[in-house]
């Protein structure tokens, strides 16, 4: 069999985030309008492997993904061993904008899933002018905890096993087995307490109830795509969000769960392409 090399290129950039030096890993593929992709809690940029290898995307867009500090191949900042990792809205927004500055990424279309789907709402409120458009996957204003989060980080329970166990049902039942288990593998590889630390933002501090009404899509268009099998951010949660943000556009993706780009890359891309086409069409240029 002939080896198939992917046209994905990786690298490291050193960025100061919240006063701490961070070594951040990123990958890019394709050329054109920048499309910045944000991974879910406790995972990393490998979730976007399908997007980075899709000709219909990479022929028109430069896909850029990065692992947040503590995730994937990005190191935790010095001194991590003396802190509990807790993601906050400020830290998350600063991480994204600091990475964009360091990489000189100008007005990307930014797509985020789960915690990434939440943070695009924060970006829409705080600095919409920096983005050409925002796309929230599995995006809602808030998620209530529905299990005891302490199970995710304790030395007597294997973190990788329990994190994968927690999220396994969030994948739609029709997902291809290889994509299902690759998605879970990323969770199994997460550092101790990192998924839990991300959920501090997702299920607590990053709550945007009462705030999302202030999002002005005339400053930056907002698209929402939600998988029907997601029980963390349900289709109803995204429908509530869409109702509260006039001009936002929501589509429910049948048969898909919480990790569209990773559990069902081809189906997800078929939902994403029309959105990208709409964003790129001249009549909505500001």
């Amino acid at each position: 069999m002939r080896a198939k090399k992917e046209a994905v290129v990786g690298g490291y950039v050193n960025v100061e985030i919240a006063g701490r030096a961070c070594r951040v890993y990123y990958e890019t593929a394709g050329a054109g309008q920048p499309l910045l992709c944000l991974h879910t809690a406790g995972s990393d940029s490998r979730q976007y492997r399908g997007l980075m290898n899709d000709e219909a995307i990479t022929s028109r867009f430069q896909v850029i993904c990065f692992d947040m500090p503590y995730h994937g191949k990005s190191s935790p900042p010095a001194g991590w061993e003396t802190h509990e990792y807790k993601l906050t809205s400020d830290l998350y927004v600063e991480t994204i904008t600091a990475f964009m500055d360091a990489m000189e990424i100008h007005r990307p279309i930014t797509l985020g899933c789960s915690i990434g789907g939440r943070v695009v709402l924060h970006l829409a409120l705080r600095c919409p002018e920096r983005f050409k458009a925002l796309i929230g996957l599995q995006s809602g204003a808030h998620v209530n905890p529905y299990y005891e989060l302490d199970w995710l980080h304790r030395p007597d329970v294997h973190g990788g096993e329990v994190c994968a166990g927690i999220v396994s049902g969030l994948i739609g039942p029709h997902a291809d087995n290889q994509d299902r288990w690759e998605t879970l593998w990323h969770y199994m590889q997460g550092g101790p307490g990192i998924f839990k630390g991300d959920l501090h933002f997702y299920k607590g501090e990053g709550d945007l109830r009462g705030m999302v009404q202030k999002i002005d899509v005339s400053k930056c268009p907002l698209y929402l795509l939600t998988g029907e099998y997601d029980y963390s951010c349900t289709p109803e949660d995204s429908e509530d969000l869409a109702r509260l943000i006039p001009g936002s556009q929501l589509q429910i993706m049948p048969c898909i769960g919480h990790f569209p780009m990773s559990e069902a890359p081809a189906a997800f891309i078929s939902h994403l392409l029309p959105v990208l086409q709409r964003i790129e069409s001249p009549e909505i240029q500001p």
Binding site: Y146, Y147, G169, Y229, Y231
Partner: peptide, 16 residues
């Protein structure tokens, strides 16, 4: 054989 959303997983059932 093909459970509906919210009944396809034990943790989904815990959530609801």
């Amino acid at each position: 054989p093909t459970p509906q959303p919210r009944f396809h997983d034990l943790m989904a059932m815990v959530k609801f």
